[in-house]
Design a protein around this nucleic acid. Structure first.
Lengths: 248, 248
DNA sequence: GACGTAATGTCGTCATTACCAGTTGCTATA
DNA sequence: TATAGCAACTGGTAATGACGACATTACGTC
């Protein structure tokens, strides 16, 4: 019954254990709040050493699957509430596909623009010309979000000719342009819609809009993207889990 | 010059190294983007073993201070942009104090209420009565956010008599009521103000409001708090850093 | 000069061993 | 009976040793 850990494949042992434990949690074999076997026991069961077990467990703890209590043991943590892209930087398409929702993307505008003061600041004056994409995304047929994206022409020459209605922007940058995407900083604001956005989103012109400004960074900390997304306030909500940091 | 690691104090070696490295980063001794000494070198310098160095470094990486590149070395990561409470669950007072801003809290209402369907769902039907606190918080004299907080009476008998204008709610729960606060789940929404809130926040009645609903959990995963905060959309913004997770 | 290769340095993985530090429950003692 | 204290768990910290995988550089060959 217990899946074995294979030592003759090039997959790290701690990683195999992680996957096994995640599987056991998802399948309900290990229930929420339940005490899991001790580190030493897991080592015996799967025939690996304790440090290896600890690496697997520590990562699962930091990912929110487990919770440790010194002297008592390790428990299966309460399942995270469905996490929006505030926790994981995945593309819109993946997010929606995972939720099993119908979605579509319409490219409203594709153009090349010069710098302005915002772009100057965001890209630290490194680039002169930018692709500016404006896209409307719908979920289940309803307008959901408008995204304006700026990407330096120098970094992705020809991007403007790609089919961005069928293929995800991030996936395209990763696969076709060999971008090594690292992380993103997001600023979240609430504001009122302007007239054009209100029309496109099919809401009243006084409606609240969830603004999310994203700076996308490569693995080497270089900014490669700046985008401004306007979500319908009445359709969107974002969740985030925050650890408590008591300062002594 | 280099601070030594003390082996005769009950502070873990890896933790001492973490503090030293953080200090060196903050002081500018180690600059952004700079390659830091290799794990083996650090081990020699501070006379500790490589696994200990690795523990310190790995935690700093997960906290965003460092960035590792396999085969190349470890770099000082670009400094995080000022992080709002979306990353660290600190209290409002601490957040503001750290920014050096003047702030004040006014308790608008203190009462005991029974369950309703929302509280039933949030607290899983575990409690009958709740303290309901309504507080207005101002920054630099300007209204900034209104917070409605629900806490089960059973968990903090007498809380209603505490001075919550001078002392932080979280700090009070921690120190006086021995709460072991674990983490929080936050849901972020944009909406329009209602009349009372608009008046209190001194904004137009059509203005956008940043809604943040928080469920506070103890270390053992029990919900101890539910709050709804309404921030002025024009004054508040929240930032969050998101790692990229490419799925193969 | 261009290219492949080897050397060397980096982080990544893993095992083994040892001891420390909280928690819990049993037991011997008062 | 009540309780202090002693195991016997748990996870936490630390050292040592070994090898693998990846990146860079220098060098030798073509």
């Amino acid at each position: 019954m217990t899946r074995r850990i294979q030592k003759d494949v090039p997959i790290p042992l701690y990683y195999q254990l992680k996957e096994i434990l995640k599987e056991r949690i998802k399948s309900g074999d290990l229930e929420t709040g339940e005490l899991i076997p001790s580190e030493r026991e897991l080592g015996e069961i799967y025939e690996i050493s304790r440090p290896t077990v600890r690496q697997a467990i520590n990562e699962l703890v930091s990912e929110g699957f487990l919770r440790k209590e010194h002297g008592r043991g390790t428990y299966v943590a309460k399942q995270k509430i469905s996490q929006w892209f505030l926790q994981n930087l995945t593309s819109f398409s993946e997010e929606m596909a995972e939720k099993g929702l119908d979605f579509s993307t319409t490219v409203l505008k594709k153009e090349v623009v010069g710098v302005d003061s915002t772009l100057e600041e965001v890209f630290e004056g490194n680039f002169e010309q930018f692709y500016r994409l404006e896209r409307l995304r719908c979920v289940n047929g309803e307008p959901y979000v408008i995204v304006t994206t700026y990407i330096p022409v120098k970094l992705a020459e020809g991007l403007i000719d790609e089919d961005l209605e069928q293929y995800s922007l991030y996936k395209t940058l990763e696969k076709k342009y060999q971008f090594q995407i690292g992380y993103a900083d997001r600023v979240i604001e609430a504001s009122n819609a302007n007239k054009e956005d209100a029309d496109l989103l099919a809401v009243d012109s006084t409606s609240a809009i969830q603004l999310i400004k994203t700076r996308g960074y490569l693995e080497n900390d270089e900014v490669f993207e700046y985008s401004i997304a306007r979500y319908r306030g009445d359709l969107s909500n974002f969740t985030v889990r925050v650890p408590y940091q008591s300062n002594t």
